[in-house]
């Protein structure tokens, strides 16, 4: 392999890219048929393909790490995930009673309360009321966005969902062979 400079001559330019894809099994019809027909009659391209077959696997040889490494990796990561939850739990508890539908409702309620306040205490409340109208709903909207996030994570509670996701991806790709 690669011992002679002769063997390193180039493939035909118009076939090189397709040969790379062909090596990886990513060359589709009709290109792959075209490549195969060409390979029959072209020594340079055959050499090129043989070279790819020789050296490309050399760059990719994942080493097996001991199970003990993965056990500690996993435990360490679990602790980090738990720390994220601990950080977010106070915040989440504070807003847990808000649902997306509650945001406009709360906004409306606030407007009503403010309107009431305004009629009861004109002038003095006017400035604060205006602020509240503008700021509170946007804060709540942000909170609701986060609630969506936690609710979307309910999907992840279902292992069936995960399995379905995996089945779909393995059906779509050869990736699972890794």
């Amino acid at each position: 392999m690669l011992q002679h400079k002769d063997s390193h001559r180039s493939a035909c330019k118009s076939f090189e890219e397709d040969l790379v894809l062909y090596y990886y099994g990513d060359c589709r019809e009709p290109e792959s048929h075209r490549v195969e027909e060409h390979l029959k009659g072209c020594a340079s391209c055959r050499h090129f393909l043989e070279e790819l077959q020789t050296f490309l696997p050399l760059t990719a040889k994942p080493k097996e790490l001991p199970q003990a490494f993965w056990n500690s990796y996993y435990e360490e990561l679990r602790e980090k995930l738990a720390a994220i939850d601990a950080r977010e739990s106070w915040w989440k508890r504070s807003f847990a009673f808000f649902h997306p539908w509650a945001v406009p409702a709360l906004g409306t309620a606030l407007v009503l309360i403010l309107a009431l306040s305004l009629t009861l205490a004109k002038g003095m409340w006017h400035f604060k009321g205006h602020r509240a109208q503008e700021e509170v709903p946007s804060e709540l909207r942000a909170a609701a966005g986060n609630i969506d996030f936690f609710e979307s994570m309910d999907l992840l509670d279902s292992i069936d969902f995960l399995e379905a996701l995996e089945d779909k991806s393995s059906a779509n790709s050869e990736f699972q062979k890794l």
Partner: peptide
């Protein structure tokens, strides 16, 4: 909603993808 449950579900993904 159970936060612990969400995390457990995510840990399934961790186990599945950590090596890759």
């Amino acid at each position: 909603m159970c936060q612990r449950g969400e995390r457990q579900a995510f840990e399934v993904l961790v186990r599945r993808y950590m090596k890759r």
